[in-house]
């Protein structure tokens, strides 16, 4: 029983971070109708920002305040100068935007490799390996703090999407772009802001993950895949679904690691993914309707 609870806790904590990664991806998916295949690479970049700041003595959690605005601006620039010009060309298929994100991901990886080599980097903080106990269940200090911050960002994001005109305009653009234009929404500007927001959110996940993970240029790919799975699990474009998707993947991975062995972690996650595709093709969105 204790093992089960311990696994559950570990899975949920991880799931909170995954949700943060997934929400950024699903926002971009909803508004632009494309899968951002550079999502994990953007996170990797934020982890390197955290790493560099850490060598200067800045705590990873404080580097949120640097990495998020920086990645927001980068996302804005990418959408404005690399992705939006592709929409305007009539003859080009929307798939070309997805190909562009693949290119962006590759470029980011190689630029970082150029600057930092492929070596694994670590950020060690006083709390990196610290744990505390509730009953017999141990909680990783770093992951618990990360989970709390991830929840705070998620709640803030919901508040923003539901209560502000800009947030409503983002949702409206995702639901019906032409109608949004008729309401006076500048949908071009909305795509730019959305890509910026998605990048900032995944940057937050990167900062939070940095103290407990290796940092290397190629970690972007696997995380892009995870973000993709979370988004599909949740139902493309659904924010609430992305949270469910994130927690499901987190739980599946940690259950797999405990009951089948560490090397099965990803296999279990992918099995769940395939099962959802087979039996619930619309993702969790089909169940929640949001």
């Amino acid at each position: 029983m204790d093992v089960f609870l311990q696994t559950l806790v570990a899975g949920v904590l991880k799931g909170g971070l995954y949700a943060l990664i997934g929400i950024g991806m699903t926002l971009i998916m909803g508004v632009m109708g494309i899968i951002n295949l550079a999502h994990g690479q953007l996170m990797m970049l934020a982890m390197y920002v955290t790493f560099v700041l850490n060598t200067m003595g800045v705590d990873p959690y404080f580097s949120l305040f640097v990495a998020m605005p920086l990645l927001f601006l980068l996302g804005v620039g990418l959408q404005k100068f690399l992705l939006n010009p592709l929409i305007k060309a009539d003859t080009i298929l929307p798939e070309n935007q997805v190909l562009m994100t693949v290119g962006i991901g590759m470029a980011l990886t190689e630029i970082v490799r150029f600057g930092f080599t492929s070596d694994y980097k670590y950020i060690t903080t006083t709390y990196s390996n610290e744990t505390f106990f509730l009953g017999k269940i141990s909680f990783s200090m770093a992951l618990t703090i990360a989970f709390g911050i991830a929840i705070a960002f998620t709640v803030a994001m919901f508040f923003f999407l539901i209560k502000t005109d800009l947030g409503r305009s983002i949702r409206a653009t995702a639901q019906d772009k032409d109608a949004a234009t008729l309401m006076g929404v500048n949908t071009g500007r909305i795509t730019v802001i959305t890509f910026g927001l998605g990048s900032a959110l995944v940057a937050a996940a990167g900062c939070l993950l940095a103290p407990v993970y290796y940092i290397f240029p190629d970690l972007g790919g696997p995380f892009t895949a995870k973000a993709f799975i979370i988004t599909i699990l949740g139902g493309l474009g659904s924010t609430v679904g992305a949270i469910f998707g994130g927690v499901t993947l987190g739980l599946a991975e940690s259950m797999g690691a405990t009951y089948f062995g560490m090397e099965y972690e990803d296999i279990i996650g992918l099995t769940i993914f395939v099962l959802v595709l087979l039996f619930l093709p619309g993702g969790f969105k089909r169940l929640t309707k949001v």
Binding site: R168, R171, A172, Q175, D176, D178, A179, A180, L182, V290
Partner: peptide, 10 residues
């Protein structure tokens, strides 16, 4: 607009 074009999920 034609066909109402409401934001259906809002």
């Amino acid at each position: 607009p034609e066909a109402r074009r409401l934001f259906r999920e809002m």
